[in-house]
Design a protein around this nucleic acid. Structure first.
Lengths: 195, 195
DNA sequence: TTATTTTTTGAATATTGATTCAAACAATTC
DNA sequence: GAATTGTTTGAATCAATATTCAAAAAATAA
């Protein structure tokens, strides 16, 4: 018998995030991922079915995490709808700020994933969307959110806005302190642009 | 002498938008684009340097158009800052609603473009950003916009939000009437989520 | 009609890089 | 210390497809 040295599966996944972020999925070479993970090219195929499988697992892992965290906030009975929106924004901004490369992959390879995988595309936004749904509906019921705003538009709007902010932050094209980002978004969401 | 038949350059570009939207840049085959444009594979290389050059020209064309239209709105002295924001949203939503495939390529291949082309990445958001800058600054000066919101965050936020809405609309995953989309966004921007 | 020139063609070429797999390796057991 | 068995390796294979280019076609000129 021979036992496994270290945690190659994890090393490969982490290396892949870096390489995908740097070069994009299609331009990324397995050999480069292997090199960065300090394993042989062939080892990658021991732990993952193929290149696409690596991408899928990156998303799955992130998605499970977000699902858990957002659901917890959405279901917290001690919070008002407004506080929930605040916390959800904060959570999303924090998650991606802590792992910039992950956020770049998340934004850039979204369509790579959806084109390749129908099943995934259905489950995909579910976590975020369902959580947002509940918060938004609750806000409307409690008459603190504006019911003239279409819920579906609101969800897509928010998601896209956050995605882009996070992405530009990760690419260093924005370069605004995280606190200022959170505060600005929270003001915009709650009060709009106007004074 | 032999003269050109029809407008192959244009046919190829239009076919490419369709194919890129359907399969993504990297999975798209030149032969497929040629087929759709009703020309031979080789003809593509008469009109475009290479595959990437086609993508660049798709973006360049769209970008010039948006630049022209957004600048016109931003510089119109007869409009208030709020009206300008309204009109810019309307223009963006309309442009992409009219050409769904273009909007899909625009969103999905943004990073394909930026990774390959440094010069382009600098000029890239310029049109939208500069126009937005002027409107936003004007709004702050005239004390109709909230100066606690960071301008850079606002621009990225708006851009990402619109991008995502337009994209999901094009992919038919949203499916809300265009008018409702516009109205919802305009309320959110101006008044925020709250009543 | 024939020659000239430009456009168009699509099969052949060349490259790139994902994936495979037989061999080497290192723990563990006996 | 030899046998066993799971792990790791990386060069060889193989497929995909972007790009090239010599030949064919068509329009115009002579």
């Amino acid at each position: 018998m021979r036992t496994k040295e270290g945690n190659k599966e994890k090393d490969i996944l982490e290396a892949a995030v870096k390489v995908f972020a740097e070069s994009g999925f299609h331009r990324s070479k397995i050999s480069k991922i292997a090199e960065l993970a300090k394993v042989a090219t062939g080892s990658v195929y021991v732990y993952y079915e193929n290149k696409y499988d690596i991408l899928r697992k990156i998303f799955e892992k992130l998605w499970n995490r977000l699902h858990r965290e957002l659901t917890t906030i959405a279901d917290d009975k001690s919070l008002t709808p407004e506080e929930k929106v605040d916390l959800m924004i904060e959570k999303l901004v924090d998650t991606f700020t802590e792992e910039p490369e992950l956020s770049i992959v998340f934004v850039n390879e979204q369509h790579t994933l959806l084109e390749g995988d129908d099943e995934m595309s259905v489950r995909y936004y579910t976590a975020y969307y369902k959580a947002m749904d509940r918060v938004f509906t609750e806000g409307i019921e409690k008459k603190v959110f504006n019911s003239n705003i279409d819920m579906r538009v609101f969800k897509d709007f928010m998601f896209g806005a956050l995605r882009n902010i996070i992405h530009n932050q990760a690419r260093k094209t924005l370069n605004v302190p995280v606190d200022k980002i959170k505060r600005s978004i929270q003001i915009m969401i709650k009060n709009g642009l106007k004074i």
